[in-house]
């Protein structure tokens, strides 16, 4: 008899959308316990955050002093740690605060800022601990998560696919939003996995799956300039969902300084 691998799903600062990759899985959610022993997944009702596990999925970014301690404990008790989603892989949209003065923002929103305790920055999980696999996406899909689990169950390293969204548009025979419509599409520098849904809806990709491998952000930014975008608009394109992913952060900040 084989023992089922123990699995935990942890949440840090996030919108919970990536946990829905599990919770929206329907029948597969009922089948998973035959393959895996889910020991901790608060939203689904399994509670044992400190149990040693074979695989830990981590959603969300590191955002508070307590988060730092918690992710270190999780790392220490996990054999294989997978960060899921834009928040966990790059700090998420809330990493936009890394560009501003958090103290001023707290004062602007909360009447009693002294009650609010946060770090100065929203950080990716990999900035705090070693991460074995990153699944990018805002949100990640059930297919991404299941593929990773399947690979690990078979004892092979999960495939890392950081192809560009453009590849999917070609396969789907979607008309190019950048070339044919002149929209500032981030598809040429964004990783695939979403199914290229934005171009399929006739709109430009906004980069929610983070940078692809070898993204030529500089050339694309110049192309955007050719479309008539001002430096401030170009900066905003890159400084969005995956604003703290290094490739997007560098390009965005460069154009922000020119603005």
């Amino acid at each position: 008899m084989t023992t089922r691998p123990k699995v935990a799903v942890h949440k840090f600062s996030s919108c919970d959308g990536c946990q829905l990759a599990f919770l929206n899985a329907g029948e597969a959610l009922l089948a998973l316990p035959e393959l895996l022993d889910i020991v901790h997944f608060a939203e689904a009702g399994m509670l044992d955050p400190d149990a040693p596990v074979d695989i830990a999925f981590v959603e969300g970014s590191v955002y508070t002093p307590e988060d730092v301690d918690r992710i270190r404990r999780i790392r220490a008790s996990s054999r294989y740690l997978i960060s899921i989603g834009a928040c966990a892989t790059s700090g998420g949209i809330q990493a936009l605060r890394n560009l501003g003065d958090t103290r001023d923002w707290v004062g602007a929103i909360y009447a009693r800022p002294e009650y609010i305790q946060t770090l100065d920055q929203s950080r990716a999980i990999a900035e705090e601990v070693k991460v074995d696999l990153e699944l990018w996406g805002c949100p990640v899909t059930t297919a991404q998560v299941v593929a990773a689990i399947r690979a690990l169950l078979y004892g092979v390293a999960p495939v890392k696919n950081r192809d560009k969204v453009c590849m999917d548009c070609k396969r789907n025979q979607t008309v190019c939003t950048l070339v044919a419509k002149g929209e500032p599409c981030l598809g040429p520098v964004t990783g695939t996995g979403c199914g290229a849904i934005c171009p399929a809806f006739g709109r430009d990709c906004y980069g929610c799956f983070g940078p692809a491998e070898n993204p030529n952000t500089g050339a694309l930014a110049q192309c955007f300039q050719g479309l008539g975008l001002l430096p401030v608009d170009i900066a905003r394109r890159f400084l969005f969902i995956s604003n703290d992913a290094p490739a997007f952060a560098a390009e965005g900040k460069k154009w922000r300084e020119e603005a």
Binding site: S13, Y63, I93, T102, V106, I109, Q117, Y206, C208, D233
Partner: peptide, 19 residues
């Protein structure tokens, strides 16, 4: 932990708001 969405929205283009 405040995620500051109201502040992220400041300065954003109107067409970015739904995302």
């Amino acid at each position: 932990p405040p995620r500051f969405f109201e502040k992220f929205l400041e300065g954003r283009a109107w067409h970015e708001v739904p995302d």
